[in-house]
Simulated scan of single mutants.
Amino acid sequence: MADDHHRESAQFDRLPSTPAVSIASHAQIMSFERSGWDARTLTVHRLHNILAAQRKEKSMPIDKYTLHKDSDTEKWRLEKEGSDKAKRTFDRKEDALKDLKHAVGPNGGSVRIRKVDNTIQEERTYPRSKDPKSSKG
């Protein structure tokens, strides 16, 4: 029985953890130990926190942008979905493509890149870790 518990705890400890979850879990574990909770309950509680944080991180929507050429100004505009205001403008498409990662900001986002004729050329996600796993690209 003790071996089963040890094997189960070791298996849970190998699960990935984010720093925020590790810090919160450590504080909670210290609190629970003072309350007299056993190691198995603490391990299950830690696993629950890790999985909840991972689900929340994956379910957060990412901002969507479009890069297109403005026919009036002849500049390339990066616009956030639902807004007519340009987040950034570029003289050349090449310049825009080189700077997309920084242009969408630290939270990243998905950028739909259009050709001069306004058809979709491609879609890129920054950072790559936010790219939906179900997408083809």
Rank of each mutant, 00 (worst) to 15 (best):
F12E: 11
D13I: 10
R14D: 15
L15I: 06
P16I: 03
T18M: 02
T18L: 04
V21L: 08
S22D: 12
S22Q: 14
I23F: 14
I23S: 14
I23T: 12
A24C: 05
A24T: 15
H26G: 09
H26Y: 12
Q28V: 10
F32P: 00
F32Q: 10
G36H: 12
W37K: 11
D38Q: 15
R40E: 15
R40K: 12
T41N: 14
L42R: 10
L42V: 15
L42N: 13
T43N: 14
T43W: 08
V44P: 01
H45G: 02
H45E: 14
R46E: 13
L47F: 09
L47Y: 06
H48V: 03
H48T: 15
A52H: 04
A52N: 08
A52L: 09
A53L: 00
A53Q: 03
Q54S: 08
Q54E: 11
Q54I: 01
Q54V: 05
R55Q: 04
K56L: 12
K56G: 00
K56Y: 01
E57H: 07
K58H: 05
K58S: 02
M60S: 06
I62L: 11
I62M: 05
I62K: 10
D63E: 13
D63A: 11
K64C: 12
Y65S: 03
Y65C: 02
T66N: 04
H68E: 13
K69V: 03
D70Q: 03
D72S: 09
D72Q: 08
T73H: 05
T73W: 09
E74S: 12
E74Q: 12
W76K: 01
L78Y: 11
L78F: 11
E81H: 07
K85P: 00
A86P: 08
R88K: 15
R88N: 06
T89N: 10
F90H: 09
F90T: 05
F90R: 08
F90S: 04
D91Q: 02
D91I: 02
E94P: 01
D95P: 00
A96T: 14
A96H: 05
L97Q: 13
D99Y: 07
D99C: 10
L100R: 13
V104N: 14
G105R: 04
N107M: 10
S110Q: 09
V111M: 07
V111W: 11
R112H: 00
R112Y: 00
R112M: 00
R112C: 00
V116E: 07
T119I: 02
I120L: 09
I120D: 05
I120G: 01
E122Y: 00
E122A: 10
E123S: 08
R124S: 03
R124C: 04
Y126P: 04
